[in-house]
Amino acid sequence: MNALVAVRPEPHRVVDADGNAEPYRYQLSIDDRVALEAALGVADEVTAVGIGGNAAQRCVRSALERGADSGTHVTFEPIEGIAGEKYATVLARVVGREAPEAVFIGEASSLDGPEVAGLAAAKLDWPSATQVTELGRESLDVTVETDFGDDELAVQRKLAIGRQEAVVVSLPAVFGVDSGFTNPDRASMATLIAGRRATIETVELADVAPRESRFSMSVGNATVEQVTPNERWGRGRPPRTGTVEERIYRMLGRGSGESGGAGERIDAPPEEAAERVVAFLRQNDLL
C-alpha cells in the first residue's frame, strides 16, 4: 500500500536547566510524527507532503529522516497561518498527483486543527476514519471475523472516553490519527543519514492549485458581497460636498457641524440631568 502523510510545522521551545528559554523554532508537529509512525506501520511506501514556506520544507526533511521514502514540498510564502479548508484543498490536489491508497493526517495539529482530515476526505470523495488508535487486523483490541481483501483496512477508533469501535474501511481512504496512537521513536542512524541525503521534490503552489494564492491560502473561503464606505476620517473616502467646516465635522464623525454633535447637551447639575434623562426615557416608553 502506498500512503501519503501531511507534515506541518508547529512552534517548539527549549528551556534549559537554568530556566532560560530559546526563541520559538518551527519543527515537525508531534501529532504529524504520530501520523507518520502510523503510516510506516502499514504502508509499503510513504510520501511526506509539506505545504508552505521554509518551515514546511524542514518538516518534509524531518519526515524523510524518520523513515519516509519520498518527500514533496508545495512551496509558497504564507502571509500568516494557512486556513484549514485551503490546506485540505491543496492536499487533495497533491493526492490526485501522487495517487496514494491512503492519506494519514495528525488530528490534533495546532496549525490547521482537526478538521483537515474530514475536509480532505470530502474534497476527494473518499471514506474517512477519524480518531484512529490502531490500524490492521492484528493490532486491534478486538477480533474482526469479517473477511476483507487488500483494498480494505481494519481500524480501531475512539468514540468517547473509555469507548472505542472497530470498523473496516475501504481504500482509498483518509485516516485522522489520534495523538495517543503511539509515542514516536527516533529513527536509526542509517535512516537519518538517508533522509538527509534524499531529494525533496519542489512544486509551486500555482502548479498544484492554479486558483489559489498566498493571500487566499491565509484568508480562506471569504467572500465580500457589498462594501459600504465609512466617511469618517481615515476609514473611507472623505466627503466632497458641503463647506469646509461641514466636511471636517463629518470626517471626525460629529455630524454636519450645525448642531456641534450627534446628541443633546444638558446644562444642569448631575442629579437634575439624570432625572431629566429618566423622565425622557419613561415618556417615550424606553424605560
Rank of each mutant, 00 (worst) to 15 (best):
230 N>A: 09
76 F>S: 00
163 R>P: 12
146 T>P: 05
122 A>M: 14
17 A>E: 13
107 E>Y: 01
113 G>H: 04
174 V>G: 02
113 G>Q: 02
51 I>S: 00
253 G>S: 14
244 V>E: 09
192 L>S: 10
76 F>Y: 00
89 T>A: 10
178 D>F: 02
99 A>E: 02
117 A>G: 05
154 A>Q: 03
174 V>Y: 00
217 M>F: 01
207 D>Y: 02
243 T>M: 03
19 G>E: 05
177 V>F: 00
233 W>R: 08
20 N>Y: 10
228 T>Q: 08
223 T>F: 03
167 V>G: 08
261 G>E: 12
73 H>Y: 15
200 I>Y: 09
80 E>R: 11
151 D>W: 06
44 D>Q: 05
123 K>V: 12
225 E>D: 08
35 A>Y: 02
177 V>A: 15
13 R>K: 14
127 P>C: 10
131 Q>K: 07
207 D>L: 15
175 F>H: 03
153 L>V: 00
168 V>Q: 04
284 N>G: 13
83 A>T: 12
205 L>C: 01
149 G>H: 11
123 K>Q: 14
54 N>G: 11
142 V>P: 01
138 E>G: 12
101 E>C: 03
57 Q>F: 14
146 T>Q: 08
75 T>F: 10
208 V>M: 01
219 V>L: 11
30 I>D: 13
83 A>E: 11
160 A>M: 06
284 N>P: 08
206 A>D: 03
243 T>N: 10
172 P>I: 05
162 G>I: 15
284 N>T: 14
166 A>D: 01
10 E>M: 07
29 S>P: 01
99 A>H: 15
216 S>R: 14
111 L>G: 00
247 R>P: 01
185 D>K: 13
11 P>K: 03
209 A>D: 06
131 Q>D: 12
252 L>E: 15
68 A>G: 00
10 E>F: 03
263 G>N: 15
59 C>T: 07
84 G>C: 03
5 V>P: 04
153 L>W: 13
134 E>A: 06
257 G>C: 14
42 V>N: 07
258 E>M: 04
93 R>K: 12
232 R>N: 12
283 Q>V: 04
135 L>W: 00
146 T>I: 14
38 A>K: 09
58 R>I: 08
58 R>H: 07
108 A>T: 10
185 D>H: 13
140 L>P: 00
137 R>L: 13
79 I>L: 10
228 T>R: 06
246 E>T: 08
53 G>M: 05
104 F>Q: 04
178 D>E: 12
179 S>E: 07
94 V>W: 06
137 R>I: 13
8 R>D: 15
180 G>A: 07
132 V>H: 14
85 E>Y: 12
1 M>K: 13
79 I>W: 07
119 L>R: 14
119 L>C: 06
222 A>T: 15
211 R>H: 09
173 A>P: 15
112 D>P: 03
8 R>K: 02
123 K>H: 10
200 I>C: 05
134 E>I: 08
194 A>G: 12
50 G>A: 00
187 A>D: 01
273 A>R: 05
102 A>G: 10
221 N>Y: 05
15 V>L: 08
184 P>T: 15
135 L>R: 04
19 G>H: 09
102 A>F: 09
40 L>Y: 09
168 V>S: 12
73 H>N: 15
150 D>N: 10
259 S>P: 07
